[in-house]
């Protein structure tokens, strides 16, 4: 059962929610650092201004990759909110990110090249955990379809606490938060200029930013799935998780790629796999 109206709602509303989220994020970050910070609506002003700038490119093919990145991020998010197959959503999501990486590669620029390599390392760091999360949800609800997981009355978080912690860990990577903002960062102190986004500018950069907003909303939706049996708890969980990410962002210094990869995989193994193993064992003893 694919619910098209939710997909449309996502496509229309997600940029506003995502932009607002980014604004709140910047405000809170500024307060944590003892600054006043920009207005909440600043991300919208920024993107608006980017669209007014003159477009310059290193190679016209960058446009193709960035546009594909945006289109496939929107498509995978829409598929998620429409209730589609979670694994397919994850694969479409990876496809979208490969387009971003390819866009960075296409410019033959030293900084975006390193950014692209690091982005790939980030992808292999987080992807196993996301797949394991989907598998965990399947083990509890017996379905990969988001709408069935949503309508399941089981409190997934109680079955999958380890998986949830592992997911929070990779969420830090996905939200481009320190210590795992290797490939590009929201902060000014990035050692590889702007990483993957170095060679994107003007309207093209605006598209990358909007894609990131869509992506964040999708990720928060993923958190919600763990708490879907109770909408109120779900919304509180999302807020707490996001505040936690902002706190982490402002308290840790950037990690190396090796640390990122190892810690993400170890957490996926320790938290995710062990959780699934216990669940697998228990399902033989007591029917879930």
């Amino acid at each position: 059962m694919i619910l098209l109206e939710y997909a449309v709602l996502f496509i229309v509303l997600a940029p506003f929610i995502g932009g607002l989220l980014a604004g709140i994020d910047r405000k809170l970050t500024a307060r944590m650092q003892g600054r006043v910070g920009p207005p909440i609506l600043q991300p919208f002003y920024d993107v608006g201004k980017l669209f007014q700038k003159e477009q310059i490119v290193v190679t016209p093919s960058q446009h193709f990759y960035v546009l594909s990145y945006l289109v496939f991020i929107v498509a995978s998010g829409a598929l998620f909110f429409a209730g589609g197959d979670l694994l397919l959503v994850i694969f479409a999501f990876t496809l979208a990110h490969i387009f971003l990486v390819l866009g960075a590669y296409s410019s033959y620029s030293p900084y975006s090249f390193i950014g692209a390599e690091r982005e790939l390392i980030q992808i292999i760091a987080y992807e196993p955990m996301i797949i394991l999360a989907a598998v965990g949800m399947y083990m509890v609800t017996k379905s990969f379809f988001v709408w069935e997981i949503m309508t399941s009355s089981l409190p997934l978080i109680l079955y999958l606490p380890g998986v949830f912690l592992g997911f929070l860990m990779v969420l830090t990577i996905k939200l481009r938060k320190s210590p795992f903002d290797l490939s590009t960062s929201h902060h000014a102190h990035q050692e590889i200029v702007k990483g993957v986004t170095t060679e994107f500018s003007g309207p093209m950069l605006a598209r990358v930013e909007i894609a990131h907003w869509y992506e964040n909303v999708f990720l928060l939706g993923f958190i919600y799935l763990f708490f879907a049996w109770n909408p109120l708890v779900g919304i509180i969980a999302i807020i707490v998780a996001y505040l936690l990410e902002i706190l982490i962002d402002n308290t840790f210094s950037r990690a190396t790629w090796k640390f990122t990869l190892k810690s993400a995989w170890i957490i996926a193994g320790m938290m995710g796999l062990v959780n699934l193993g216990v669940l697998y064992y228990l399902s033989g003893v007591v029917p879930v």
Binding site: V101, F113, I123, I124, P128, L276, G277, Y280
Partner: peptide, 30 residues
């Protein structure tokens, strides 16, 4: 479950080496 884990990790490793190869060939080198 062992195989699911192998596929989850192995699958993402696959993404890495193919993508960097792709990136090499599509770099528009002046």
């Amino acid at each position: 479950l062992i195989f699911v884990a192998i596929l989850a990790f192995g699958g993402s490793i696959t993404v890495f080496f193919w993508s960097k190869w792709m990136g090499k060939i599509i770099s528009v080198c002046p």
